[in-house]
Structures are given as C-alpha cells and as structure tokens.
Design a protein around this nucleic acid. Structure first.
Lengths: 252, 252
DNA sequence: AAAAACACTTGATCAAGCTCAATACAAATT
DNA sequence: AATTTGTATTGAGCTTGATCAAGTGTTTTT
C-alpha cells in the first residue's frame, strides 16, 4: 500500500500513461483505467540496432509492435535479394497488422537506426479487446487507417510523376515529425537514397537528381540525410500536380 | 412454433446460412448460431444498376457492404474528373473498410454491372463483435487481409512492367472466379480498358496493345470483355518476372 | 435507320525516367 | 594516415510506355 505511489524510474519510463506518444499510439482515446489494462500486456524489450530485423516474412505472429524511438522500414523481400519497401515507421506507429490474417508476417521489418519498441502479444490484445469496446474500436480504426494510407500510396505510384512523388514523401515526413514535436522543416531521414527510391518506385539516380534539382530551385537544402525544407508552400503545390508548370501529366 | 420451419422463398434467398458465398464472406468460419446473430443485423436492399454509386467519398459510414452478385469498383475521385481505381470487387468481398477510421468513406464505389449487396450497419456490427469473439477475429482477419492485398498492389505498381501487370491482373481474376465456382479460363471482365489501365497504372492504349500481343502469342483469346485464357502456366511465368526473355527488368 | 456518343484498336512520335558507367564523397577498417 | 567499402552524385544514351492522332467498331439516342 505504501509503495503504491512510489514509482521507480523504470516504471515511469515504461507506462503508457507516462509515454509522450500516448496520443499518437494504440492507447489513444482510452480511459486511464483502460490504458492501464492495456499496459499490463505490453512488453518492452531491449533496443534494436541499425539493420536488425524486428521480424521476417513468414515468422509467426506473436506480437504487434509499436515504435517508441528510432525508425523502421517494412518490406517484402524477393528471392534474389531485391525488395519492395512498403513503409517507413516513426514512433507511435503500430506494425505487424498485415500478419493477423495468416498469423504469420507478410513482410519483414528492419531497424533503420537504434530503435526501441513496445511489443503487444496479439492474442492477449485480441482477448483484451473483446472485453474492452474502446480498444476494439481503436483497433478497427488503426486497421482502417492503414488501408486508407495504402490507398494514397496506390495513387502516388499509379499516377504521380517522380517530382510529385518525392515532394509528397518529404511533406509526409515533415507532417509526421511535426506531430511528434520535432521540426517540420529541419530533420534527418534515416533511410538511404536507395530505400527512398525503392519505396517511391524510382531509381536511386532519379531520387538523387531530384534532391539536387529541388535544392537548385530553392525548395530545400539537402546534405546527405539532413534535410531542411525551405519552401513548404511550393512543395505543396508540386504535390497537388503543379497545374501550371508541367506540360505532361501522367494519364488521367 | 409451427411455422418456425416453414421458410418462405424470400428467407431462403436472404439468409447467410443458405448463401453460397458464406465460405468466402464475412460469416466464414462462424458457428451456425453466430451466423444467425450476424444475419439478424444484415440488410438486403434492391440491386444497383451499372454506374450507380454504392457510396461516395465523404459519405458518412453507415454500413459495410458485401457484394452478393455483380461487381464494383472503388476509386478516389480527383477534382478534375480524373480518378484512381483502387480495386475491383467480386461477390463475397467486403467493401467500405477504409471508412472506419473517420466514420466517413475515403473512396467512392460504383457498380460495374447490375449488382446486389448485403448491408451491414457498422455500429451494429461493432457492437455484435464485442460479444462475439469469433466475429471480432474475423473482422481483424479481413482488415488485415485488405492491408496485405494493398501491399501486393504496391509491389505491382512499384516494380512490375506493363506486361507483368496485365498478366497479374488476369491471373488474379482467374483465381477469384475459380474460387466462386466459375471458369478460371473463360470469363467476362465487367470493367472497361480504361478502368483496367487506370487500376494498373497504365495508359488505355498500352492495355489494348498488350491484349493484342498476348493474343498473338497464344496466351489468350480476347474479344472485347470476353477473355479466354489459353496458357495459364506461361501467364504465370510472366507474372514472376519472366527471367529468361526480358533484357531490362525494372530497378530492383 | 441514321446519328451521335462512346469504347477500343492501331500507328507514329516523344519524353520521363531507367540503365550503365564513372566519379565523388563519407564512413569504417587497418 | 591510408585503404577499403559503401553510399551518393552526375553524365550519356536508351527503352518503356505515354501522348497524340486517326480510324474502327459498338452501343445508345433520336
């Protein structure tokens, strides 16, 4: 009873209710009591290092994972070492959702830098969500959001030009960093040019050339992975098709 | 008590347990009792005609919908009348899942031919799934499956050549028709060349040329919307990159 | 039945972006 | 500090698939 209120340093770090990501993360919108119930099934392991796999395609689904710090790429490897990057994940984002269907992971996940995650054993989560309508609702919302995001990506890959793709990519990160309390205009990208190109359906060289061109046009300053966005409004017009300046839009 | 077992013609038609799609559809895997509970919230309206909207982007989410006959395309319209086709749906498939996040539809859906649907009011479904673990599980699986399918589509649009895209498209329909008890090699596509191209990220002309070429190569016979696949194995090798014959594969 | 609107096909041309190749730069290793 | 390795940039040329244009066939409207 006495040490009920004595919270160790470690506990402060690890409880959902004390986590700065709570409003972006799975517990978003849960009542304090519900958050505590969720918290009771969450496991925090040791951090992953750059290049470590969080899981591999084909692995059994044990847990969904939430990034708490660092960043991760998910991708579908192909026989020959090639891959399709499916997404980049920042703190607060839930990964592994595509594994629920077959109880086995449909993609692989790799840490892009030193990365910490919360593990949420799926069977516990499912059981808990049965008795916690707010959690079930949150799961439905997160799954649905993922579907919506994929649809945007389909439009990007199906219809947008190379420069629209890169501008979209940069503004997406800008917004996501901002939501997490970081600068919207000055940040480091943890992935390589190769991974950016792979994700956007472009060759590395095209990505590199576009960075150079964007810099020449005064849209941004780039030095390796360090990006400073200098003209958000103009980047935004590029994202939305750039009606004026382009002679050829891709088939509508 | 006496007419408990007297089932009217209409009831036969409309009950999940008598529906030939039950094994492909939302009630898949539910016990007979659970299926009946699900059945109690399902509404069957009158059919849609070619070109009718099932819902429009921005509409409030009232119901998820399952196609029972016919076919549907979903798409995100853009200001100027252009659109990105997101998917084509056949009987047994659940649509509207991307609307859960914001309680409003993120895409529009249009009937490609005369189409009947079951409507499942989402709030009832959510409530029911709270008290029915098997239904909740099924919802998680279906949402997860959608995410997995979108990922495959990202690979298609990000990495595959025009001929790989069309071959993938055709084999996908072949398999889906087969699952529904139709011929895997002889079917009608309900969408236009334009819609196929839009979906696959290709110009109409390219789609048309590919159909002609595939026919010349003896892979299929095509006459307007009527497709006969003549060489499934060869189509399958095209899907998987066609290691032999292609000098240029897209950036890996 | 004719006209109009639409969908599809085929051909010719062009450009966006890929491939190949060489170089520059940064980080890691010795 | 020098070497190696990996990553990024830049240039030249080429290919895929888009665009433009014309023509054919089909469906709908009058």
């Amino acid at each position: 009873m006495t040490n009920r209120n004595v919270v160790s340093f470690e506990n402060i770090k690890v409880a959902c209710k004390n986590c700065s990501l709570a409003t972006l993360c799975l517990p978003m919108g849960l009542s304090p009591e519900d958050m505590e119930r969720l918290d009771s099934i969450v496991k925090r392991g040791r951090p992953f290092h750059r290049g470590d796999h969080l899981f591999r395609e084909g692995d059994n689904l044990h847990s969904l994972r939430v990034i708490t710090s660092g960043s991760v790429k998910t991708f579908t490897p192909s026989e020959d070492g090639g891959e399709q990057v499916l997404s980049f994940h920042l703190p607060g984002e839930l990964i592994g959702l595509d594994a629920i269907q077959n109880e086995s992971h449909a993609c692989s996940a790799k840490a892009l830098e030193t990365t910490a995650v919360c593990e949420i054993p799926f069977h516990n989560l499912e059981e808990l969500s049965c008795n916690m309508p707010s959690l079930q609702h949150q799961m439905y919302r997160l799954l649905s959001r993922e579907i919506g995001q994929d649809s945007e990506m389909l439009t990007l890959l199906g219809k947008k030009s190379a420069e629209e793709r890169l501008a979209t990519f940069l503004l997406s990160f800008s917004e996501r960093f901002k939501k997490r309390g970081f600068s919207a205009t000055d940040f480091f990208l943890s992935m390589s040019r190769h991974e950016i190109g792979n994700y956007l359906g472009l060759a590395v060289e095209t990505v590199s050339r576009l960075f150079t061109r964007f810099q020449d046009e005064g849209l941004l300053h780039v030095e390796r992975k360090h990006i400073q966005l200098l003209d958000l409004p103009r980047l935004a017009t590029i994202v939305h098709g750039n009606e004026n300046g382009r002679s050829h839009q891709r088939h509508v």
